[in-house]
């Protein structure tokens, strides 16, 4: 596997372990929600940056390893069970409802999600509507910059994981698509 390909830590329901030796830079804060695919941080190794994603882990960050050197297999993040009301309503919805066979369209970074191009205009996509691959699902606003969030697959928009104006973290699902 190339060094700069995204990697996941070793699977452990409560502890996410470092997949490499290097310098650890977390991308989450304590208490953050961890869901499958979320970016946890980076490990810089010999000038190459390794993105570390959550794999299949779910939970809330209980302990976070601070910035600094890390050895292979050392604990990066300890997870606790999801606390009631921690996540946004949409995100909790996404975790508790079945996601089997669905593809999550996720936020590429933390920001505010808007489901329509501007107030008063129709939304990019509606629940149960057809969505093409690369079709616009939402806009993510960060510091007045609007980044498109597009579907990675063609299919049916099963449900939204957030409502218009929700704050989301990097990797949070925005919508779930049932692929063709």
């Amino acid at each position: 596997m190339p060094l700069n390909a995204p990697q996941s830590p070793s699977i452990d329901p409560e502890r996410l372990l470092s997949p490499a030796v290097g310098s650890w830079w977390p991308a989450l804060a304590g208490g953050a929600l961890v869901q499958p695919g979320v970016l946890l941080g980076h490990i810089d190794r010999l000038g190459t940056r390794l993105a570390v994603h959550a794999g299949q882990a779910t939970g809330q960050v209980r302990e976070l390893r601070p910035v600094g050197p890390v050895q292979y297999g050392e604990v990066l993040i300890s997870l606790g069970a999801l606390a009631e009301g921690v996540a946004s309503a949409g995100a909790t919805d996404a975790v508790t409802k079945s996601t089997e066979g669905l593809v999550a369209i996720t936020a590429p970074m933390a920001g505010t999600v808007y489901l329509a191009p501007s107030p008063g205009e129709p939304p990019f996509a509606a629940k149960d509507s057809r969505v093409e691959r690369l079709g616009r699902v939402a806009l993510l606003e960060v510091m007045k910059t609007f980044t498109p969030i597009s579907s990675t697959v063609s299919g049916t928009l099963e449900r939204f994981a957030c409502v218009d104006g929700d704050a989301v973290s990097a990797g949070d699902p925005v919508a779930w698509i049932r692929p063709d």
């Binding site: 991308a27 989450l28 941080g41 960060v142 510091m143 007045k144 910059t145």
Partner: peptide, 18 residues
């Protein structure tokens, strides 16, 4: 670059593009 970029000294913190 109009896209958000990561703060060079604060990993995980994004900054506005442009």
């Amino acid at each position: 670059n109009p896209q958000l970029t990561e703060h060079p000294d604060k990993p995980g913190e994004m900054r506005a593009g442009g």
